[in-house]
Nucleic acid binder design. Structure first.
Length: 247
DNA sequence: AATAAAGCCAACCGCGGTTCG
DNA sequence: TCGAACCGCGGTTGGCTTTAT
């Protein structure tokens, strides 16, 4: 009996895995037609399917749902995927909700196979560029602010030294105990401990990002630039191999 | 024609959030 | 309030198919 097999499977934890058969598909479809979606863990109890609730849900959502759109991703859908991915990142389910009939798994697989290491669309490139420019501007402002505070501090110390020389009074010690606000102190400490090269890297931490700011670029250099950018986005250090795990 | 490499996709796994008793 | 069960999501894997050599 199916129920006997199911009970045994449940008790032993021996859920069936691997590709679904036509019979399993039919049982699951009938279950959803009668019970509706949800309560996936009760599918095995009511149908005799030796599949976990998780597996049943996945099979239904990704393959059996009647509103699924079959066939290749169209150019329009591809555009939507690229635009939404530029905005949302790897939030596949959110992207899928904007593409009726497509599943998050389908979109995820499509992205991986078509765009994972490919040159981004113009819009996606513009977005990436914009992010870099904002980051650079923010770092530039922080750098200038830190420099300004450093100069102020140096001027104050010079004035103190001059006053000390003029009055021969130990006021310097008193003045040195006055501290700038905490956050300024942190910046001063950070920048103050840097040599000029480190400060420059703080402002402009990677060659690819620097190059972005120098647009427009010759077409030949642009490809190299985007390669650099992708490596940066992927977090590569130049020694990575294989294709598992990274986006 | 044989075979290695790459492409593709269905399915599984682990984790985090939500619901319920 | 807390813990177990359930659900959904993103990442990863395994295997089949197609393409290149």
């Amino acid at each position: 009996m199916a129920m006997d097999a199911m009970s045994s499977a449940v008790l032993q934890g021996a859920w069936r895995k691997g590709p679904w058969t036509a019979l399993e598909d039919r049982l699951l479809t009938e279950y959803v037609q009668q019970q509706g979606e949800g309560s996936w863990n009760s599918v095995a109890k009511l149908t005799g399917l030796r599949r976990s609730g998780k597996s049943c849900r996945l099979r239904w959502v990704n393959y059996l749902r009647p509103d699924l759109k079959r066939g290749k991703i169209t150019a329009d859908e591809e555009t939507v995927i690229l635009q939404l991915h530029a905005m949302l990142g790897n939030r596949w389910s959110a992207i899928a909700r904007c593409l009726p009939g497509r599943t998050d798994n389908e979109i995820k697989n499509y992205w991986r196979t078509h765009f994972k290491k490919a040159r981004p669309s113009r819009r996606a490139r513009a977005q990436l560029l914009h992010q870099y420019q904002l980051q650079q501007q923010q770092q530039h402002r922080q750098y200038l602010h830190a420099l300004h505070l450093l100069q102020q501090q140096q001027q104050e110390m010079q004035m103190q030294l001059q006053m000390e020389q003029q009055t021969h009074q130990p006021q310097v010690m008193m003045m040195q105990q006055q501290s700038p606000p905490e956050e300024d102190q942190a910046v001063i400490t950070t920048v103050g401990n840097m040599n000029s090269m480190e400060a420059a890297e703080c402002y402009c931490p990677c060659p690819a990002a620097s190059a972005v700011l120098d647009l427009p670029l010759p077409a030949d250099d642009e490809d190299a630039l985007w390669d650099s950018l992708w490596r940066l986005v992927d977090g590569e250090d130049g020694s990575s191999g294989g294709d598992s795990g990274e986006y």
